[in-house]
């Protein structure tokens, strides 16, 4: 593992949204094939960091270097370079509600890679099977599925083009503990099967422990701690301890309003 190359390297990333300085210099190295989970309180900047990494948002300052290429300049070709090799599971699943399930899963194949509908459907049903969904589900509409099923479909859609990098935005939010564990298992299984590098953000510690090779904690727009999942109990960092144990009292005080 240690011999592997760095896949993504984030350096001194800054981002301001309106009056709020969300990211204040993030530094992260992610090795190829590693699963990194970034934990942090709501509003700590996790989502913004993820969006800057995948190219949905342009950072104000700093760089995101993927395979030696800085994509933080956010040019058309940077974004294409990134989307070509990555997939993302969105917090609310973000399925296209006007399309059938299989068309959702095959969306990239149908519209970006110009596969035939037949081949795309075949691949979509394969991906659905990989996340434990029967082929009949393929013909349903997203609104006919429960939240947990939608998450599975969204995962199937993210892996449909065999990405090398996978992003997970709060993969277990809004799910019951059992379904959350199912999704966690699927994530671990699929990431392993693809040999992909995975970056997840979550505030669910159970999920973080399960899917992470390493955990990093984001606080006030900076990474304040990083280590293995079994080291997190003895981090000797008061902020990490407070977060892991879920206490209202401690060095982290929650802002009631934004900014």
């Amino acid at each position: 593992m240690s011999m592997r190359e760095t896949k993504i390297s984030v350096r001194n990333l800054h981002k301001r949204l309106g009056p709020r300085q969300v990211l204040r210099g993030i530094d992260l190295e992610i090795t190829e094939g590693q699963s990194l989970v970034v934990i942090g309180a709501s509003g700590s900047g996790k989502s913004v960091m993820l969006k800057c990494m995948i190219g949905l948002m342009k950072a104000d300052k700093g760089s995101v270097i993927v395979d030696g290429r800085n994509i933080a300049r956010h040019s058309e070709s940077d974004r294409r370079f990134m989307t070509k090799q990555s997939g993302m599971l969105f917090q609310g699943s973000a399925l296209f509600d006007s399309l059938r399930i299989w068309e959702n899963v095959a969306f990239r194949l149908l519209h970006a890679e110009k596969s035939s509908r037949k081949a795309a459907q075949k691949k979509a049903l394969e991906c659905l099977a990989q996340v434990g969904l029967a082929p009949e589900v393929g013909n349903l509409m997203p609104s006919e599925l429960s939240g947990g099923m939608q998450k599975r479909v969204s995962l199937a859609r993210a892996i449909a083009s065999d990405p090398q990098i996978l992003f997970f935005d709060e993969p277990t939010t809004g799910l019951d503990p059992i379904m959350a564990d199912v999704i966690n298992n699927l994530i671990v299984e699929r990431v392993k099967a693809l040999g992909a590098t995975a970056i997840s953000i979550t505030h669910d510690m159970a999920s973080a422990r399960k899917i992470a090779d390493e955990i990093a904690m984001l606080y006030q727009g900076r990474i304040i701690w990083r280590g293995k999942p079994d080291e997190i109990e003895n981090s000797n960092n008061p902020m990490v301890e407070q977060f892991v144990n879920g206490r209202a009292e401690g060095p982290i005080t929650m802002a009631v309003t934004r900014a």
Binding site: L56, T83, S86, G87, F90, Q91, H111
Partner: peptide
Amino acid sequence: TMRVTEQIDAMSTLAVNPFKY
């Protein structure tokens, strides 16, 4: 609705330009 439910972002990550689609 597609914007606020992140469907437009999802489309971008699937290599489809929302402007064109």
